[in-house]
Amino acid sequence: MATYSTNEFKSGLKIMMDGDPYAIVENEFVKPGKGQAFNRVKVRNLKSGRVIERTFKSGDSVEGADVTDVDLQYLYNDGEYWHFMDPQSYEQLTADAAAVGDAAKWLKEEAVCQVTLWNGVPLSVAAPNFVVMTIVETDPGVRGDTSGGGGKPATLDTGAVVRVPLFVQNGEVIKVDTRTGEYVSRVKE
């Protein structure tokens, strides 16, 4: 893998530190009036998601991380692993629970997800921003209430639970924003 000089630092650049892949979030060049210049960076650990601060002497180099984002189609879960397929090459990849994380509850078969690969292995999975799900369980709401105020919990076919307006009923299909976990609208089939 290539090495990057601090002169190539910019947000989004993927680098290796302490054996983990990181993405640069922020990069600032600092220099005292006279003396050593530094690059102060905020970096996100691509495994844990945690953001930390690091500093490099300006001009030094750091190893790049082989991290790429690909769009893969979700196939199925075998109880332990989530299986994905590259729609172009039909190559199949498996992701473990650490990589899938919270996205698990939004994954429906055939959904196309952005998967981050590190050395060719799924490191993290992002569910599509919006998913369409069926409500499998919710308390009967009050007929005629269309205000959406209040709301009630609803369990979806993947097991995810979202708050929905009172008028939404069992068996209905809804659209959810996976980034916030919020109900967006009903979907007419």
Binding site: G35, F38, R40, I52, R54, T55, F56, K57, D60
Partner: peptide, 21 residues
Amino acid sequence: PIPPGMPADETDPWLDLLLTH
């Protein structure tokens, strides 16, 4: 955060690090 490769025999880069940060 201590940058990699800080010298063991020269204090000025360390003073610069503390001063700037």
